[in-house]
Design a protein around this nucleic acid. Structure first.
Lengths: 197, 197
DNA sequence: GTCTATAGTATGATAGAC
DNA sequence: GTCTATCATACTATAGAC
C-alpha cells in the first residue's frame, strides 16, 4: 500500500518522497538524510535504489519532460488553428502543474542552476524547443489574423511562458480550482485583457 | 574605485559581490569561499564585515524591500485613479527589477525557503501587505468601472504579481529594453489582451 | 582590513553484515 | 531492502597575528 502519490514500487515511493521534499525546500536544501528520514530508512539505504542524489532529481525532471513533450508534439501535429494550438498548449501545461506538481516546482526553482552542469544539459535543449514551439504558434497566429499584428512575439512568448509555469507557486492540486478552470481564466485575461469595454 | 555596482565602501562592495553570486547561483549554492574568492580575499576575512552568510542575504533583502515600499506607499497615497495606481505599481516594480536586479532574483529564487526561518519572517509580512495593496486596487478598479466586472480579483492578483516579478529571469539591465518599455508592453497585454479585434 | 590556522559540523557516498 | 559503521570532503565560523 503506497503512501506517496501513485508509487507502486519501493523505488517509485522513494522517488515521490524525494520529489516532494525537493519541491518544498529546493534541491540543495534537501539532504539525503532528509529523504531517508521521510521514508523511514537510513540514508545509506537510499543508495541501494539510486546512484546519487543528482540521479534522483535527474530521473524526476527527465521523465516528466519526456511525458510533457509527447503531449506538446501531438498538439503541434494536430489540425487546429494556431490560436487553438496555443490554447491547447496552455491547457496541457496547467494539467502538468496539476498532475506533476513537484516536478514543475523543482523545474521552476532549481533548473536554472542544475542546467549549468553537463548532466542536465538537456534542460536547456528542451527550453530551446519550447521557445521554438511557442514563438512559432504566436507568429502563425499573427499571420492568420487571429492575434493582434502589433505584438512583440518574443516578449509575449516570455510573458506567456512565465505566467503559465509560475502558477505552480500558488496552485494546489485538489484545491478549489481545477487546472481547466485556471487555464480558462488565464486565457481569458491573456486574450481579452482586464480593461472594461 | 569600486568595481561592483554603486558600492562606495569595502563593505558595500563585498555585499554587491555576494548579491551577484546569490542571484546567479542561489543562496545555498553560493559558499562564503565563493564570495571571498570573487572579492580577492580569504573566507575568514568576510567575517570582519558581516556576522554570517545569512546576515548578508538578510541585509540585501530587507534594505531592498524597505526602499521599494517607500515608492509603493507614495503611489497608494497619491490622488490617481485605481487603474492608474495599478499601472504605477507595475512600473515601479519593473524599475526595481532594473535597478535592484540581484535582490529581486534572490527574492524570486530563495525567499520561499528563507521565509521558513524566524529571521526572515518579515518576508511573509511584506507579502501580505503586497497582496492587500494589489487586490485593493483591483477591487477599486472594478468598482470604479475601469476594470471588467467579471474579474476574479484573487486570481488576477496572482497573475499580475507573478508576471511582473518573474520577468527578472530574462530581463537584463542595460539591454535593448528599458524597464519603462517592458512595463508599457506588459500593461498593454494585460489591459487589452492579445486577441485581434 | 586581511591572513594564518583551525575548530566543529553537515553532507554525499561507500563497504559489508544481516 | 535495510542497517551498521564510517570515510572523505565541504562548509560555516572563530581566534589571534599582522
Amino acid at each position: 500500500m503506497p503512501r506517496e502519490g501513485t508509487a507502486v514500487t519501493r523505488r517509485e515511493e522513494l522517488l515521490a518522497i524525494a520529489a516532494r521534499l525537493f519541491a518544498e525546500r529546493g534541491f540543495k536544501n534537501t539532504t539525503v538524510r532528509d529523504i531517508a528520514d521521510a521514508a523511514g530508512i537510513l540514508s545509506g539505504s537510499l543508495y541501494h535504489h539510486f546512484d546519487s542524489k543528482e540521479a534522483m532529481v535527474d530521473e524526476l525532471l527527465d521523465s516528466f519532460q519526456q511525458e510533457l513533450w509527447v503531449r506538446y508534439d501531438a498538439i503541434a501535429a494536430s489540425d487546429r488553428t494556431p490560436r487553438q494550438k496555443l490554447e491547447d498548449v496552455v491547457r496541457a501545461s496547467f494539467d502538468a502543474i496539476d498532475q506533476h506538481h513537484s516536478e514543475v516546482a523543482i523545474f521552476q526553482t532549481d533548473a536554472a542552476y542544475l542546467g549549468t552542469f553537463d548532466r542536465f544539459a538537456y534542460l536547456e535543449e528542451r527550453n530551446v524547443r519550447f521557445r521554438t514551439l511557442w514563438t512559432g504558434l504566436l507568429a502563425e497566429g499573427v499571420a492568420s489574423g487571429e492575434l493582434r499584428s502589433d505584438l512583440d512575439v518574443e516578449l509575449v512568448y516570455r510573458f506567456l511562458r512565465d505566467t503559465v509555469w509560475v502558477a505552480v507557486r500558488w496552485y494546489r492540486p485538489g484545491g478549489d480550482l481545477t487546472p481547466g478552470q485556471v487555464a480558462d481564466q488565464y486565457l481569458h485575461i491573456l486574450l481579452e485583457g482586464i480593461r472594461h469595454g
